[in-house]
């Protein structure tokens, strides 16, 4: 018996060894290093690295670009998440009805989700082109003033948000649709029997029952908004006019791989991490208030 247990332990660690080694080298060590580097003046060109205390943090918090990158990230999250929530829930409710061509609709709303970000961002760069792009053509066709889109400090971020909404909407629609389909129909019918109209049934029964999914979508929205980088880097390679689209990951990228300031980049990374943690905690608190029927 003892021997068998011993053998089981050996087998278990043989199975776990590759994963454990990789986890330590590429995850755990970097997690510790990021703290260490943020307190040092590691600039890659110069191999000497000294402990500099809070200098990197002082630097980034007095760097106008970094402060702007925080504002830009919050702007992105603050505009994108609510819009995404409302639109995707609305479309999901429509798709939940007994209608024909359901599959066709679902496929087309989900198509942008599966296509590679960079490839579709290329398309939108042209759509947004102030002179040769179809968006401005449509705007002037309906009698509106053409915009400079990605070239206008006030419109660059909304343009990127518009693109990101288009790209991600299908995902949340599918999630909401799955949620709506899991709601027992007798609960909704009961509300109708009690004299509720369809609006009341939606806001008083369906929506509270969906609250765990709304919570999930908002949580993922927050986390993903703080990680946003690809579309920024492709559509506005320099962070947009007047750094109007420079988000936090973009700032980290520039500090680390354009300026080779690893210390500053690491300090900014940790600020990003703390903000994600803080926001998700706040959301957890708020989320607890939501109604639940079991």
């Amino acid at each position: 018996m003892k021997k068998r247990e011993h053998r089981e332990t050996v087998v278990a660690y043989v199975c776990l060894a590759p994963a454990l080694i990789l986890a330590v080298v590429f995850m755990i060590v970097p997690m510790i290093m990021v703290f260490y580097i943020s307190f040092s003046n590691w600039d890659f060109v110069n191999p000497v690295k000294n402990f500099v205390g809070l200098k990197n943090y002082v630097y980034i918090f007095s760097d106008e670009k970094f402060l702007k990158s925080i504002r830009n990230t919050l702007y992105f999250a603050g505009v994108k998440i609510p819009l995404d929530l409302v639109i995707s829930l609305f479309v999901a409710v429509l798709l939940d009805k007994k209608i024909r061509m359901k599959k066709f609709y679902r496929v087309s709303y989900f198509a942008p989700v599966v296509t590679p970000m960079v490839a579709v961002a290329l398309i939108w760069i042209w759509l947004f082109d102030p002179t040769f792009g179809p968006f401005n053509q449509i705007l002037s066709f309906v009698g509106l003033k053409p915009l400079k889109w990605l070239y206008d400090p006030n419109w660059a971020m909304p343009s990127v948000i518009l693109f990101s909404l288009w790209k991600g909407l299908g995902y949340d629609i599918i999630i909401f649709l799955a949620g709506l389909q899991s709601i027992p129909t007798h609960l909704i019918e009961a509300a109708y029997i009690d004299g509720a109209n369809s609006r009341q049934a939606f806001f008083k029964v369906t929506l509270p029952l969906l609250s765990p999914i709304v919570y999930f979508v908002v949580l993922m929205g927050i986390i993903n908004s703080f990680k946003v980088f690809t579309q920024i880097s492709v559509m506005t390679p320099r962070g947009g006019p007047l750094y109007s689209t420079g988000v936090m990951v973009f700032y980290i990228y520039q500090q680390a791989f354009e300026n080779y300031r690893m210390g500053r980049a690491s300090a900014a990374s940790l600020v990003l991490f703390c903000m994600v943690i803080a926001l998700t905690q706040i959301q957890k608190r708020l989320g607890r208030k939501s109604v639940e029927y079991s």
């Binding site: 590429f26 995850m27 060590v29 970097p30 997690m31 290093m33 990021v34 580097i37 986390i223 703080f226 990680k227 980088f229 990951v249 980290i252 990228y253 680390a256 791989f257 690893m262 980049a265 690491s266 990374s269 940790l270 990003l272 991490f273 994600v276």
Partner: peptide, 11 residues
């Protein structure tokens, strides 16, 4: 930690 946070030390 999201990958974006440990990007620099990983690199």
């Amino acid at each position: 930690m999201p990958f974006q946070v440990t990007l620099v030390p990983m690199f």
